[in-house]
Design a protein around this nucleic acid. Structure first.
Length: 293
DNA sequence: AGCTATGATTCTAT
DNA sequence: ATAGAATCATAGCT
């Protein structure tokens, strides 16, 4: 018995519940899969070739929809924040925020999470293929990342609420919340969807040809990848030359742009937060200072 | 029109 | 070669 690829899972499923249907792969293109490769750096070299093999196809792996969903949730922390901040009366407790986060997660995952638990329950029954193992690692990786995003957001919002209850600067703090609400959307997820989504328009600095040099903003997907990388390596956000090349490939940016992005990011969001000398101005600031306290 | 966030450049230090 | 700091330039929002 193998770990549940779509077909095998359907076959070996003990009860044919509706939940199995939720485990079928989404029709979304597999492009995002490339981003999973950093999950087990160095150790998955032998596994990569097998991914080309039909026997270990991950394109319709049972865990893929769940992983896609995690990625989507992680890449849109502003949505979670919005769910947390709504109906906030200034006296909301941290427990309530956690409940809100749980509710948000539940609404997002719907049946996917239940299926995930079922798989974990039955995990002993399965013989894991390398692809299964990799998908499992990826799912766990993104699950943890999502938990981290949740914790960070809840902490951030709760700390604002907490300090808002201390008398004087209430107005300043409440305006803070709305400030955050506004800024999260803008600064974490650039509003541009496709305006500059192609690699060509991203490489502004390299277009030195006929005078007109236009700067474009890094597209949403690339930006999310960069931020995820930065957060995942926030203890030492200095990509090695190899990593820089990899990041450049995955984001469609020039290496110089990657270098600039990290330099700016470290200077503007990382260092200041470490020293706690500046007020956090956006969600990234909050997330970067979480473990510093 | 003004403001902010952000991509890029330049300079200096290591 | 690469880092940080200061700075410029501009996209996008209000």
């Amino acid at each position: 018995m193998t770990f549940p690829n779509r077909i095998t899972y359907l076959l070996c499923s003990r009860e044919k519940s509706q939940q199995t249907a939720l485990l079928t792969a989404s029709d979304a293109p597999i492009a995002n899969f490339a981003t999973l490769c950093h999950v087990t750096p160095g150790s998955d070299h032998e596994e990569k070739p097998k991914l080309e093999n039909d026997d270990y196809s991950v394109h319709d792996h049972a865990l893929l929809p769940l992983i896609h969903k995690f990625i989507a949730m992680i890449s849109q922390p502003a949505k979670l924040l919005a769910a947390l901040v709504i109906d906030c009366d200034g006296r909301t407790s941290k427990e309530t925020f956690w409940a809100k986060a749980a509710a948000y997660q539940h609404s997002q995952l719907q049946g996917l999470c239940t299926s995930w638990y079922r798989i974990m329950e039955d995990i002993d029954l399965y013989e894991l293929s390398p692809a299964d193992l990799m998908m499992l690692k990826a799912a766990v990786y993104y699950w943890r990342l999502w938990q981290y995003v949740c914790a960070s957001c809840v902490d951030a919002v709760a700390s604002i609420e907490e300090s808002a209850t201390s008398p004087p600067p209430k107005q300043e703090l409440t305006s803070w919340t709305s400030l955050l609400q506004k800024r999260n959307a803008a600064s974490i997820s650039p509003p541009l969807e496709d305006k500059c989504s192609d690699a060509l328009s991203q490489g502004m600095i390299l277009s030195g040809g006929n005078g007109m040099v236009k700067r474009s903003r890094i597209n949403r997907k690339s930006n999310e990848f960069l931020i995820a990388w930065f957060l995942a390596h926030k203890e030492n956000p200095y990509p090695s030359p190899d990593e820089r090349v990899e990041i450049a490939e995955k984001t469609g940016l020039a290496e110089q742009q990657v270098r600039n992005w990290f330099a700016n990011m470290r200077k503007r969001h990382w260092k200041p937060n470490r020293a706690n000398t500046k007020k956090p101005r956006c969600l990234v600031d909050y997330m970067l200072r979480q473990s510093d306290s």
